[in-house]
Lab assay of single mutants.
Amino acid sequence: TLFEALYDYEARTEDDLSFHKGEKFQILNSSEGDWWEVRSLTTGETGYIPSPYLAPV
C-alpha cells in the first residue's frame, strides 16, 4: 500500500525524512508506533516520518 503526505514536514533529527504535501511513500516498517520508516517515491530517500501526516493512496 502506498501512502501520500497530507502536510509538509521538516526533519528534526538525522533519522527523520523531510517531505512535501502530496509526496508518495512506500512503507518499510510501521511497527515502531507513530513513526514509520518509509522510502520516498519522489527522492528515493529513506527515513522516519510521523504516520499522522500520511493517508493511504
Results as ranks from 00 to 15, higher is better:
residue 1 T to C: 14
residue 1 T to N: 11
residue 1 T to P: 12
residue 3 F to S: 01
residue 3 F to L: 05
residue 3 F to V: 07
residue 4 E to K: 07
residue 4 E to M: 13
residue 5 A to G: 02
residue 6 L to S: 04
residue 6 L to Y: 04
residue 6 L to I: 10
residue 6 L to K: 08
residue 6 L to W: 05
residue 6 L to G: 03
residue 8 D to S: 09
residue 8 D to H: 06
residue 8 D to A: 07
residue 8 D to F: 04
residue 9 Y to A: 02
residue 9 Y to E: 01
residue 9 Y to G: 03
residue 9 Y to C: 06
residue 9 Y to H: 07
residue 10 E to W: 09
residue 10 E to L: 11
residue 10 E to F: 11
residue 10 E to N: 10
residue 10 E to P: 05
residue 10 E to M: 13
residue 11 A to P: 05
residue 11 A to R: 09
residue 11 A to C: 06
residue 12 R to F: 09
residue 12 R to D: 10
residue 12 R to C: 13
residue 13 T to A: 12
residue 13 T to I: 06
residue 14 E to M: 10
residue 14 E to L: 11
residue 14 E to S: 13
residue 16 D to C: 14
residue 17 L to T: 04
residue 17 L to I: 12
residue 17 L to C: 04
residue 17 L to W: 07
residue 18 S to C: 05
residue 18 S to W: 05
residue 18 S to F: 04
residue 18 S to D: 04
residue 18 S to P: 05
residue 19 F to S: 02
residue 20 H to R: 14
residue 20 H to A: 11
residue 20 H to Y: 14
residue 20 H to V: 14
residue 21 K to V: 08
residue 21 K to R: 10
residue 21 K to C: 07
residue 21 K to Q: 08
residue 21 K to M: 08
residue 22 G to L: 02
residue 22 G to K: 03
residue 24 K to D: 01
residue 25 F to E: 00
residue 25 F to Y: 01
residue 26 Q to E: 13
residue 26 Q to A: 09
residue 26 Q to C: 11
residue 27 I to W: 06
residue 28 L to N: 01
residue 28 L to V: 08
residue 28 L to D: 00
residue 29 N to I: 05
residue 29 N to H: 07
residue 29 N to R: 08
residue 29 N to E: 06
residue 30 S to Y: 12
residue 30 S to Q: 12
residue 31 S to R: 09
residue 31 S to V: 10
residue 32 E to G: 14
residue 32 E to R: 15
residue 32 E to A: 13
residue 32 E to D: 14
residue 33 G to P: 14
residue 33 G to T: 13
residue 33 G to Q: 11
residue 33 G to D: 11
residue 33 G to K: 12
residue 33 G to W: 10
residue 34 D to L: 15
residue 35 W to F: 10
residue 35 W to V: 11
residue 36 W to S: 01
residue 36 W to L: 06
residue 36 W to Q: 02
residue 37 E to A: 08
residue 37 E to S: 08
residue 37 E to R: 12
residue 38 V to D: 00
residue 38 V to G: 06
residue 38 V to N: 00
residue 38 V to M: 05
residue 39 R to Q: 08
residue 39 R to Y: 10
residue 39 R to A: 04
residue 40 S to W: 02
residue 42 T to Q: 10
residue 42 T to M: 10
residue 42 T to K: 13
residue 42 T to W: 13
residue 42 T to D: 10
residue 42 T to E: 14
residue 43 T to H: 03
residue 43 T to A: 01
residue 44 G to Q: 06
residue 44 G to E: 04
residue 45 E to I: 11
residue 45 E to M: 14
residue 45 E to Y: 10
residue 45 E to G: 08
residue 45 E to N: 12
residue 47 G to W: 04
residue 47 G to Q: 03
residue 48 Y to M: 12
residue 48 Y to I: 09
residue 49 I to V: 15
residue 49 I to L: 06
residue 49 I to W: 00
residue 49 I to T: 03
residue 49 I to K: 00
residue 50 P to M: 12
residue 50 P to W: 15
residue 51 S to A: 14
residue 51 S to D: 02
residue 52 P to N: 15
residue 52 P to F: 15
residue 52 P to R: 15
residue 52 P to W: 15
residue 53 Y to G: 05
residue 53 Y to Q: 03
residue 54 L to H: 03
residue 54 L to C: 05
residue 54 L to V: 10
residue 54 L to T: 04
residue 54 L to A: 05
residue 54 L to Y: 03
residue 55 A to Q: 12
residue 56 P to C: 07
residue 56 P to I: 08
residue 56 P to Q: 09
residue 57 V to A: 08
residue 57 V to K: 03
